[in-house]
């Protein structure tokens, strides 16, 4: 039993597969957007904490230029295979450009 405990404690991170399973369950129960969120999350499990914080910061209003935010998206897709999340960030970039939410230079 102690062994069990130690094993859970060693790594308390959820796996991408588990997140995708939860996404399927959410989708089936009628929570499509939650499911999409969990699919994005599944792509982010291996992204280090500091990296996540940097991406979040880049997405905040007035933080990035368009090129910088697109570079963030590209890096996420390239380094972690996070295609959905990258597309989501690209979509944000398009809207930020239209609504002037980028850092002015």
């Amino acid at each position: 039993m102690a062994m069990d405990d130690e094993r859970w404690v060693d790594d308390f991170r959820i796996s991408p597969d588990m997140l995708r399973r939860q996404a399927e369950a959410a989708q089936a129960a009628g929570f499509a957007q939650l499911a999409e969120n969990l699919r994005r999350a599944a792509e982010l499990t291996d992204v280090p904490k500091e990296e996540l914080l940097r991406i979040y910061e880049a997405l905040r209003p007035g933080r990035s230029t368009q090129a910088e935010l697109l570079a963030v998206a590209d890096a996420l897709e390239r380094d972690y295979g996070a295609r959905r999340t990258a597309d989501f960030i690209r979509e944000a970039a398009a809207e930020y450009a239209r609504r002037r939410l980028f850092r002015s230079e």
């Binding site: 959820i14 982010l44 991406i55």
Partner: peptide, 18 residues
């Protein structure tokens, strides 16, 4: 200090750690 996209990303970041 946010946009719907930054908030949504944050939600995914939390979910990525369960």
């Amino acid at each position: 200090d946010d946009t719907p996209w930054s908030k949504a990303f944050l939600a995914s970041a939390y979910a990525s750690r369960g």
